[in-house]
């Protein structure tokens, strides 16, 4: 089977965020980058499907040149090859723009399954996979915790709210958006890292994909949220903080 995994490179979780001068995005100069967390799980699910059913796993990523590092890491974990749509700027496109590019590139790969993460840690749009499915004319299911590939069809476990789940079956090809925790993540082995160096990364320019521009959602202003801060911050040395907090919980909040 042919599986395509959409993988996004995002700013590292622990990196401090500074808004840029134009107030449209964050300063990226001193940032570290990593794979979007749910995408790591989507990749893992794809690799496990391949181990079970055979075939190949290709990685699809739209992003600037630096994204190549995340792509190499995915190849080191066991993906067979990659398609990198080179974009000049990280935040320039909205959900419809990015998904349209990804869908166009994905169509050419003729996958049986397209896996994406359910949400990106930076933009948090939560919809790229669904828009890709619509663009590609494919059925889809979101927030997936289990995939049972049955040749002509796939049966998946969807997460619903508040601890509920549901199985859904659909014909393939199909697009699935993967929830974190679907499987245990593997680490890249030394052998994997070595092999990755010779694996193919096809690069495409966004312009090659011929996506018409469309009226976009534009970030007018990016800023630190005004803090609705009601919290009493307990000050002092660590020892004093601990003692004062216990005291407040006992005498003020009366919860102990």
């Amino acid at each position: 089977m042919r599986i395509l995994v959409a993988v996004k490179q995002v700013i590292g979780r622990d990196a401090p965020l500074r808004v840029n001068a134009a107030r449209t995005w964050v300063e990226e100069n001193d940032a570290t980058f990593e794979i979007n967390e749910p995408d790591a799980y989507a990749l893992e699910a794809a690799l496990q499907l391949k181990e079970k059913h055979g075939g190949e796993v290709a990685v699809l990523c739209a992003g600037p040149e630096r994204a190549a590092k995340t792509i190499r890491e995915a190849l080191a974990k066991g993906a067979d090859r990659a398609v990198h749509i080179e974009l000049p700027e990280a935040a320039a496109l909205d959900a419809l723009g990015t998904a349209s590019l990804l869908a166009r590139a994905a169509e050419a790969e003729k996958p049986d399954l397209v896996l994406t993460g359910l949400q990106s840690d930076d933009l948090g749009l939560g919809q790229t996979g669904v828009v890709m499915a619509e663009r590609m004319g494919l059925p889809h299911a979101t927030i997936i915790m289990e995939i049972d590939f049955r040749g002509a069809a796939v049966r998946v476990k969807r997460e619903l709210e508040g601890g509920w789940f549901q199985y859904v079956e659909m014909p393939v090809p199909a697009v699935l958006t993967i929830q974190s925790g679907i499987a245990k993540l593997r680490y890249a082995t030394l052998m994997g890292i070595k092999k990755a160096r010779s694996k193919e990364i096809k690069t495409l320019a966004a312009a090659d994909l011929g996506i018409p521009s469309h009226p976009a959602a534009v970030i007018e202003r990016l800023y630190m949220p005004p803090r609705a801060r009601q919290a009493q911050i307990v000050e002092g040395t660590p020892q004093e903080k601990a003692a004062r907090l216990v005291d407040k919980l006992r005498t003020e909040a009366r919860v102990l």
Partner: peptide
């Protein structure tokens, strides 16, 4: 109309406008 969304898991806010018809 300007709409506010959270970015970076609630660490930043963005005011977003929508173009077109």
């Amino acid at each position: 109309a300007l709409f506010t969304r959270q970015l970076f898991q609630g660490k930043l806010n963005a005011d977003v406008s929508l173009g077109g018809e």
